[in-house]
């Protein structure tokens, strides 16, 4: 018997069940089909403004920085300000995201480069698919539009999210991903990111910038 078959038969023998039990199969099929949300914590709930405010408070509590801008065209100047305030070079890498490409980058001192990171970039910007108010979490999906390497290799990661895309819960945010890719389908990677990288492995002391970005800056576009 193959390892696979033996493991399956062992599980069924231990549980005292049969592979052809239609009732059990229906239970499993229905559960997957339903994707029913469970208990919803209240703390992420509220109207658009409340959700943005909760998101900000939660993200700041885990050492991310958050800025609100009125319109998309305010994003490039805000990023330029962030880099200047931290004495960082004005280079910025990004993917092919159409929402980012549409912004007026030429009016700023920023030097833009496109594509994934090979580890040589100090700063990168991504556009989130959604935000989650309950813990200040960003949801970023992989692809040429927002290469996953930008989320981890640069020292400073800037993420743009629209206020209308900040959901109360993980379930709501993941439902957006499901809506875009189809039930049961996923992009290669979905990154849920909550604050900059950290480690407490030396004497339980919390240190930022372990392997991923040392800074995480979120720009929330109100309109």
């Amino acid at each position: 018997m193959s390892a696979r078959d033996e493991i399956y038969s062992n599980i069924r023998r231990s549980l005292g069940v049969r592979a052809d039990d239609a009732a059990r199969r229906a239970i499993v099929r229905n559960r997957i089909e339903a994707s029913a949300p469970g208990i919803r914590p209240q703390r992420g709930e509220g109207d658009l403004g409340t959700r943005s405010a909760t998101f900000r408070a939660q993200a700041e509590s885990v050492s991310a920085t958050v800025a609100f801008v009125e319109r998309g065209e305010d994003v490039p100047p805000e990023i330029a300000r962030f880099l200047r305030d931290h004495n960082l070079p004005t280079t910025l890498r990004m993917g092919e995201d159409a929402r980012l490409a549409a912004l007026p980058w030429t009016n700023t001192p920023l030097t833009i480069s496109l594509g994934p990171s090979d580890g040589g970039d100090l700063n990168a910007v991504s556009h989130a698919e959604a935000g989650v108010a309950e813990t200040g979490t960003l949801v970023i999906v992989s692809g040429a539009h927002n290469p996953s390497t930008l989320n981890f290799l640069p020292d400073n990661h800037i993420v743009v999210v629209r206020a209308g895309e900040i959901e109360a819960t993980y379930e709501d945010a993941l439902a957006r991903v499901r809506e875009r890719y189809g039930k049961g389908q996923m992009p290669r990677t979905v990154n849920l990111i909550t604050g900059p990288s950290r480690s407490a492995d030396i004497e339980q002391k919390l240190l930022l910038g372990a392997h991923g970005p040392r800074r995480l800056h979120v720009v929330i576009v109100k309109a």
């Binding site: 914590p41 939660q58 885990v62 993917g95 594509g115 994934p116 309950e134 813990t135 979490t137 992989s142 692809g143 040429a144 290469p147 996953s148 390497t149 996923m186 992009p187 290669r188 990677t189 979905v190 990154n191 849920l192 990111i193 909550t194 604050g195 900059p196 990288s197 950290r198 407490a200 991923g212």
Partner: peptide, 30 residues
Amino acid sequence: RVLARSATGQDMSVYTTLSTGPRRPDDVDG
């Protein structure tokens, strides 16, 4: 929601990553 709170007392760990299969045609990394 109970994992990180029970483990380190964080509300949420920094990186929760959902991976499905290898690089797709429109991927530039992975």
